[in-house]
């Protein structure tokens, strides 16, 4: 977040969503509903992290998110699109059924570049599988 106000920067730092690297995946577990600024901060943090090192996949865990409105859906879409440009695949995991119903009712969609999985386990498996597929293609 571009901020010349050190206090504001500190406050934002406090509420940052951690981006965790596990093996060659980036895992982001979003808790509760993100504020707009938190969402934009997360977008930047993920982008910075994908730049550092090759990541096979970005996993966005939203199992603790009670509500997804059009803004947050757009942010998640943008994160996935940016990650794709950086050579990282994305998966959204753990969507609550009530959110799925609301999203479909509203006509909101996730881009074709976002995969979905029931839970974190399934997503890690998905990423590991596709990563080894890719490796085989390179080797052959």
């Amino acid at each position: 977040m571009k901020s010349h106000n050190p206090q504001l920067g500190y406050a934002l730092e406090e509420n940052r969503v951690p981006v965790v690297r596990l093996k060659n995946c980036l895992i982001v577990s979003i808790q509760g509903t993100l504020h707009d600024r938190q969402a934009l901060q997360l977008q930047q943090d993920i982008l910075a992290e994908t730049k550092h090192d090759r990541s096979a996949g970005l996993i966005l865990d939203i199992s603790a998110v009670p509500i997804l409105d059009s803004y947050l859906t757009r942010v998640l879409n943008n994160i996935a699109r940016e990650a794709q440009l950086m050579g990282t695949r994305s998966a959204i995991v753990g969507m609550r059924p009530a959110i799925a119903i609301a999203l479909v009712t509203m006509g909101l969609e996730f881009g074709a570049n976002i995969e979905t999985a029931l839970n974190l386990d399934a997503a890690l498996e998905l990423m590991a599988r596709s990563d080894s597929d890719e490796q085989r293609e390179i080797d052959s």
Binding site: P66, I67, L68, A98, I99, I101, A102, T105
Partner: peptide
């Protein structure tokens, strides 16, 4: 589901 829709 309805509560979630309402809040959304």
């Amino acid at each position: 589901a309805d509560s979630t829709s309402m809040a959304t």
